[in-house]
């Protein structure tokens, strides 16, 4: 394995509030390696946003240390910490662009802060806008951009100082699914082309699944599990892991004395997975009580009796699905079966 670029050592963080001390993080140990896309997932309030802010010392941990390329952030002076922060770009859920600056000046901002000559900064900013596909928006102001475009500007801004790491704090949580996909693809491209290590904080398993190589699950201020995404996805070891990964898939439906429905197969394509589609579309399990179907020259013939969950709304969802896809069905009583 490659060198760890970030080592988190026994990190803890407490907040003092009017109602007492809140422990946001406890005994966190993590190694994040050069060039990987590392995911940190957890439910809201688990402490993941605090954790990412401790990595660049926006929040100062109350215990433990963070090593960036082997250098301890805890033992640095504030000026040195600021300098180190420039090697870690950060993007946010709410983009946090400067509203009174146009796109190119937003991208120039970090370079302006560290005294890069204006001309040089502009040229670099244009190049970065090309990378994120927004060069024609250089003169636009943030208010004129869509959410996805704003995040692209934020990514260009985060890349301006040639960082070694990009911290993403729920970077796609305010975006629609398609935009999320394109932003994730962009991050992956940056990771592969520039070799930038990416740390993704999210509450969405799909984000982890689509781009991360390794993942840490954080629950109640502690790390519950760490491992490769494929490992954790195939075999989550903790309760929180199962909850996050399987989610609604382990949906417990109660059947008991609920309604039964006869579905009639009258020659639909036999290649069509009718029941699977139904389950996926309605997001509820059904109980197959009886089935007799045959494939006649590619047409499905026969019938099937399925039992619907007791929950009224879920049963109704199944009914309306059957109606929309025009599958003939009838309700059956105990006697008919």
């Amino acid at each position: 394995m490659k060198q760890p670029i970030i080592q988190i050592r026994n990190l803890g963080k407490e907040f003092k509030t009017s109602s007492g001390t809140v422990r946001a993080l406890e005994g966190i140990n993590l190694d994040i390696y050069q060039g990987e896309i590392f995911g940190i997932i957890g439910l809201s309030g688990a402490g993941k946003s605090t954790l990412v802010r401790c990595i660049n010392y926006l929040e100062v941990p109350t215990e433990g240390d963070v090593l960036f390329e082997g250098e301890s952030l805890a033992s640095m002076t504030p000026a040195q910490q600021r300098k180190t922060r420039r090697s870690m770009g950060m993007i946010f859920q709410q983009f946090n662009l400067l509203a009174q600056r146009n796109v190119i000046r937003n991208v120039c901002f970090p370079m302006e802060l560290s005294g890069v000559p204006k001309k040089e900064a502009r040229a670099r900013a244009m190049e970065l806008l090309k990378t994120v596909g927004l060069e024609e928006k250089a003169k636009a102001y943030p208010v004129q951009l869509s959410g996805g475009q704003k995040q692209r500007v934020a990514i260009a801004r985060a890349l301006a100082m040639n960082p070694k790491v990009i911290l993403c704090d729920e970077a796609t949580s305010a975006l629609d699914p398609n935009t999320t996909k394109s932003i994730l693809a962009l991050l992956k491209e940056i990771n592969q082309k520039m070799g930038v290590t990416v740390i993704m904080i999210t509450h969405e398993m799909s984000v982890i699944e689509s781009i991360c190589s390794r993942v840490a699950i954080i629950d109640q201020s502690r790390i519950a599990e760490v491992g490769s995404v494929s490992e954790i996805f195939s075999e989550p070891k903790t309760r929180i892991g199962r909850q996050l990964i399987l989610g609604d898939a382990i949906h417990q439906a109660n059947f008991g004395k609920s309604k039964k429905v006869r579905i009639i197969f009258d020659g639909r394509e036999s290649e069509e997975p009718v029941i699977s589609n139904l389950v996926l579309a309605c997001r509820t399990p059904v109980n197959i009580l009886y089935a007799a179907t045959r494939d006649l020259d590619g047409k499905a013939m026969g019938q099937m009796i399925i039992q619907l969950p007791e929950d009224e709304t879920e049963a109704r969802r199944v009914y309306s699905y059957l109606k929309t896809v025009k599958i003939p069905f009838e309700e059956v009583t105990e006697y008919d079966v």
Partner: peptide, 27 residues
């Protein structure tokens, strides 16, 4: 001012003076 914008500036290594002159007042 949105606290997130200040946080973003901090994440880019802005000093307090820079936050006042380049973020707080212009924004």
């Amino acid at each position: 001012i949105d606290a997130g914008v200040i946080e973003a500036a901090k994440s880019m290594g802005a000093s307090n003076w820079q936050i006042i002159w380049k973020v707080l007042l212009p924004e």
